[in-house]
């Protein structure tokens, strides 16, 4: 299934940061949703700002428009404010993209856990992300850091507790 670009992607002004505040807000919202859905489609968890400029998300070769470095930073900052992005370094050159926020992932995992009657049981992180039982779940193949964050989010809600076992991590759901 190929990625479906939004209509804005072929609209040249989309690639110029709009000076009008209202217009800019709508434009940024469109950029955020495009970035997240693109990453989700391609299962991308980290983005490099330098590389991003050349990636198809921010560079539409067909209409010969690309989003400037400065504008990409603005989009990323907007994503960070919404809780969908975390910088990996102080220079803001690499970032983690969370097309689902940890709380949302946590909710999905917990739903699966309750459906399968696994409340009050312990399972390893590996089982959750790579086990045969979760193959049809969206969180299957989730990167470990993301999984850990999701479970931490559940833990703060009191729905799970992370346990450190010999060489791997486990989790108990309540």
């Amino acid at each position: 299934m190929s990625f479906e670009w939004p209509w804005q992607y072929n609209f040249p002004p989309f690639f110029t940061l709009q000076p009008n505040a209202d217009t800019r807000q709508k434009q940024l919202a469109a950029w955020c949703s495009l970035t997240l859905s693109y990453c989700r489609h391609h299962k991308l968890y980290t983005l490099d700002v330098m590389e991003a400029q050349e990636s198809p998300i921010f560079n539409n070769k067909k209409i010969e428009r690309k989003l400037s470095m400065e504008a990409i930073q603005v989009v990323f900052e907007e994503l960070r404010k919404k809780g969908n992005l975390d910088w990996l370094d102080k220079n803001k050159s690499r970032c983690l993209v969370m097309w689902r926020r940890p709380e949302e992932w946590g909710k999905l995992i917990y739903q699966w856990v309750s459906r399968n009657g696994m409340v009050n049981t312990v399972c390893t992180l590996y089982e959750l992300s790579n086990g045969d039982d979760t193959e049809n779940e969206e969180f299957h193949g989730l990167e470990e850091w993301m999984l850990l964050r999701s479970l931490q989010a559940l833990q703060s809600e009191g729905k799970a507790e992370l346990i450190t076992m010999d060489d791997s991590k486990g989790v108990k759901f309540f």
């Binding site: 002004p13 690639f15 000076p19 009008n20 217009t23 010969e64 428009r65």
Partner: peptide
Amino acid sequence: EKMGHLCRDDS
């Protein structure tokens, strides 16, 4: 543009 009726493409 200021009134929100137009937007720009600066290339």
